[in-house]
Deep mutational scan, measured.
Amino acid sequence: WKVTVKGVEYTFDNPEEAKKFAEELAKKKGGQIHYKDGEFQVH
């Protein structure tokens, strides 16, 4: 499971962890999460 933040990729074994990480980042940066092709992208 991948989380991509401004072109930087983070990989997680667990989808729950990936989702949590993406949500935290989106909150911090005031961005939005897009889920696409099996990965979370924070913009």
Rank of each mutant, 00 (worst) to 15 (best):
W1V: 11
W1Y: 11
W1G: 05
W1K: 05
W1L: 08
W1H: 09
K2S: 06
K2R: 10
K2F: 08
K2Q: 07
K2N: 03
K2E: 03
K2T: 09
V3M: 01
V3E: 02
V3S: 01
V3T: 02
V3I: 04
V3L: 01
V3R: 00
T4M: 06
T4S: 09
T4R: 08
T4Y: 05
T4C: 11
T4G: 01
T4F: 04
V5S: 11
V5I: 14
K6Y: 15
K6G: 15
K6Q: 14
K6R: 11
K6V: 10
K6I: 08
K6T: 11
K6N: 15
G7W: 02
G7A: 02
G7R: 01
G7F: 03
G7K: 01
G7M: 02
V8H: 11
V8W: 09
V8F: 12
V8M: 13
V8T: 08
V8G: 05
V8L: 11
V8E: 12
V8I: 12
V8P: 00
V8D: 07
E9Q: 10
E9W: 02
E9S: 13
E9M: 09
E9A: 09
E9L: 07
Y10F: 11
Y10Q: 01
Y10E: 01
Y10G: 00
Y10M: 02
Y10N: 01
T11D: 07
T11F: 15
T11Y: 15
T11E: 10
T11P: 07
T11H: 15
F12S: 00
F12C: 05
F12M: 00
F12I: 00
D13S: 11
D13E: 09
D13G: 08
D13R: 04
D13H: 06
N14F: 05
N14V: 02
N14A: 05
N14G: 08
N14C: 11
N14M: 03
N14R: 05
N14D: 10
N14P: 00
P15I: 15
P15Y: 15
P15R: 15
P15E: 14
P15N: 04
P15K: 15
E16K: 09
E16V: 11
E16C: 14
E16H: 11
E16I: 12
E16R: 08
E16T: 11
E16L: 12
E16P: 01
E17R: 04
E17Q: 11
E17V: 07
E17M: 07
E17I: 06
E17K: 07
E17L: 08
A18H: 01
A18G: 01
A18S: 01
A18K: 01
A18E: 00
A18Y: 04
K19W: 13
K19P: 00
K19V: 07
K19Y: 14
K20N: 10
K20D: 07
K20I: 11
K20L: 10
K20E: 10
K20V: 08
F21E: 00
F21Q: 01
F21W: 06
F21V: 01
F21I: 01
F21Y: 04
A22I: 08
A22M: 07
A22E: 03
A22C: 09
A22F: 04
A22N: 01
A22H: 02
E23M: 09
E23S: 03
E23H: 05
E23A: 05
E23T: 08
E23G: 02
E23V: 09
E24Q: 10
E24C: 15
E24F: 09
E24S: 10
E24R: 08
E24P: 00
E24I: 08
L25V: 13
L25Q: 12
L25N: 05
L25W: 11
L25F: 09
L25T: 08
L25A: 10
L25P: 01
A26P: 01
A26C: 13
A26E: 04
A26G: 04
K27R: 12
K27L: 10
K27T: 11
K27C: 14
K27G: 09
K27V: 09
K28E: 14
K28F: 07
K28A: 14
K28N: 12
K29T: 15
K29N: 15
K29P: 09
K29A: 14
G30R: 08
G30V: 04
G30S: 06
G30L: 05
G30I: 04
G31V: 07
G31L: 12
G31R: 03
G31M: 14
G31A: 12
G31T: 07
Q32I: 13
Q32S: 13
Q32K: 13
Q32T: 14
Q32L: 10
I33V: 14
I33R: 02
I33P: 05
I33F: 06
H34P: 02
H34A: 07
H34I: 14
H34G: 05
H34E: 12
Y35M: 10
Y35R: 06
Y35T: 06
Y35E: 11
K36T: 10
K36E: 10
K36Y: 13
K36C: 13
K36V: 14
K36A: 13
K36W: 11
K36S: 13
K36F: 13
K36I: 14
D37I: 01
D37P: 06
D37R: 00
D37F: 01
D37K: 02
D37H: 02
D37W: 00
D37G: 01
D37V: 01
D37Q: 02
G38L: 06
G38Y: 10
G38M: 08
G38T: 04
G38I: 04
G38S: 06
E39T: 07
E39P: 02
E39C: 05
E39Y: 07
E39S: 08
E39L: 02
E39N: 09
F40A: 03
F40W: 14
F40E: 04
F40I: 11
F40K: 03
F40Y: 11
F40G: 04
F40Q: 03
Q41E: 13
Q41P: 06
Q41I: 14
Q41L: 11
Q41A: 10
Q41V: 13
Q41R: 06
V42S: 04
V42G: 03
V42Y: 05
V42K: 03
V42Q: 05
H43I: 15
H43G: 09
H43T: 14
H43W: 05
H43Y: 08
H43D: 13
H43M: 12
